[in-house]
Design a protein around this nucleic acid. Structure first.
Lengths: 343, 343
DNA sequence: ATTAGCACTCGGAAATGATGAGTGCTAATA
DNA sequence: TATTAGCACTCATCATTTCCGAGTGCTAAT
């Protein structure tokens, strides 16, 4: 079987995909000729469609329905059929409008970005916060809470803040804490969290630091307080997909909502995107996650300088409006990158 | 119409409610006699049921179905029919298990609490984080990010941390920032955030501080960085309510999910509970929110000392297992209160 | 190579009917 | 007088049937 599609079959396939994207109904041969200015008879189109089905680009839900694009068809569509389009002006403005840092914390900014993505795309917005461990430590601080509880605050280069409550055996004074944090800030400045972890271990082994019991304690303490959280994920606009006819049945719905409540697997998927810079698209089953059947993900990485910080994107049905959403995701990633630029 | 129910009608009403809570199906006269050891004939029960309907405790979906409790019935049920019950041992253990502070930040703790509430109750767990403004400031810190951006970190007495990025006109050195934060920490220690706000205004008016330009700037800066966020809400277990038959239809689902995506109104409802200490119950339409039709909320405040910190609870269908959930919410609130006790 | 024509398929909507849980009322009963 | 047995009636639910038409594949004509 030659996988070489003629120009005409490509046109027809494209017509079917685009029709299906808006209607969500199986597309018949007649509709193709009617709604798209092809000067061909339905019968001819039928022949072509039969070929396309055999090649795996189309599927028929049953004998006498029209045809529906397969994942393979969407893949072809985004890879070669779809030209590069620009972001529409109003969309660009809506995205820009949301881009401001001042008066918020990083978490909020990303959360809002996710909400914005969902509202612009009408699907679900998703943003994965910078993986803290890959970040450079900027500042560390101990604050004494009541009792033996100490609050440890870590600030990363990109301005995100993590804090942790640690219970200690010793009762440190505020002064102790100041001394400890000064010492550690000096010791650890400019290292990534991952490096910090190693550095602490080294230093603890190293006998020469033992001369000061307090500093030795400091090492222990900071060791405990390194973040072990998995990256934060913001998913917004889940109710948008309730509107989609393909998820109208309750069983399917349940599955999806369960999947998104358990964010772990999703993170796994998105972490893959961290490696590949730029736009990344998973269509339906391509993601190897059964819960993602019928869903596509469009992501892009955002970064400062040449440090990849995180991933953001849109999740929608496989029949999502790729032509519109891809540029949106791309543009948003660029804007967020610029926003987080800390020189 | 005497609203005085006889002992017998109360028993029957209770039987109907409890049956409906587990089955979610209209309850017929026959079922009442069968499943609950009442030595009465269905016919008698029917008469009583007719009375109860007239009094507004029951409703019939249609002529030949059984009857369904109204909000009024549930209200009577929780207020007078329902005895005080203890938390089951396994539940108590599951709640305890989740109660640990160390190695987490306050946000995480509350988030997990919400998740725990949902998993123990099988409905939705909800936790409103302490309203920062009502909290006492413990510590304030400025961290220089790139450019003219400064990260302001506020720590409250209860150990919760807020941070904010502020863009400044002046380019402060790290030393400046240390000096500024020392000054402010001294000035503001022990005040609630609300008081801090006032104090800053006073101080800024006050000419005597003007002798030091830097400190004057510090006041401005900290003023900008006071939190204006509305309180954070953690809602977990939304997929639990997908299991409930009464929400099986897609339209109803959509409404609910939309409502919870827009957390604002919910916060309004929960803020009312902040005033009344202890358990608080809204049944169905009582909350005056149309989106809450068919849903009940059980909340309790949590606090340290005699400072109310926030609200937590469970949202479920009006036919929720009150007998089980009320003690759970009560117990959880107590545990969280104890957990956050910072002496 | 394209198209008109036609028999055929099959899901979905509407119509029909049987089932049975549940009711309200009346008259008999304790 | 309160309770109950009996009975006719109601009405949602479910299964069955019927009908319709969009859409197909094939064949023969263009």
């Amino acid at each position: 079987m030659r996988d070489n599609l003629t120009e005409r079959s490509k046109q027809i396939l494209e017509a079917i995909i685009e029709d299906y994207i808006v209607t969500a109904e199986p597309v018949g041969s007649r509709t193709v000729t009617r709604r798209h200015g092809l000067s061909l008879s339905p019968a001819t189109v039928r022949n072509v469609m039969a070929d396309l089905e055999e090649m795996g680009f189309l599927a028929s839900p049953h004998t006498s329905a029209g045809r529906v694009p397969t994942d393979k068809a969407y893949r072809l569509y985004v890879d070669s059929l779809l030209g590069v389009r620009k972001v529409a002006r109003e969309e660009r403005e809506e995205i820009r409008k949301h881009c401001s840092l001042t008066g918020k914390d990083i978490g909020e900014v990303l959360h809002e970005t996710s909400r914005m993505l969902s509202s612009v795309s009408h699907y679900m917005g998703i943003v994965v916060a910078p993986h803290f461990a890959a970040n450079v430590l900027r500042h560390l601080e101990f604050v004494k809470l009541g009792g033996r509880r100490i609050l440890v605050i870590l600030v990363s280069q990109s301005g995100s803040v993590q804090n942790k409550i640690v219970e200690t055996a010793d009762d440190f004074s505020s002064n102790d804490l100041v001394r400890m944090s000064n010492y550690l800030n000096e010791l650890l400045a400019g290292l990534t969290i991952a490096q910090v972890r190693n550095r602490l271990l080294e230093e603890m082994e190293n006998a020469k630091t033992r001369y000061d019991a307090l500093l030795s304690k400091a090492l222990q303490l900071s060791q405990q307080s390194l973040p072990d959280k998995d990256s934060e994920v913001f998913i917004e606009g889940q109710s948008n997909i309730l509107e989609l006819p393909e998820f109208a049945d309750v069983g399917r719905m349940k599955e999806i909502f369960r999947a998104f409540e358990e964010k772990g697997q999703l993170v796994g998927l998105l972490d893959q995107c961290l490696g590949a810079q730029g736009i990344n698209i998973f269509i339906g089953a391509e993601s190897r996650l059964s819960q993602m059947a019928g869903l596509s993900v469009i992501t892009s990485t955002y970064m400062t300088g040449r440090n990849t910080l995180g991933v953001l994107g849109v999740i929608g049905p496989t029949r999502m409006g790729y032509a519109k959403v891809i540029p949106i995701v791309d543009y948003t990633a660029k804007m967020v990158s610029r926003l987080l630029e800390m020189e």
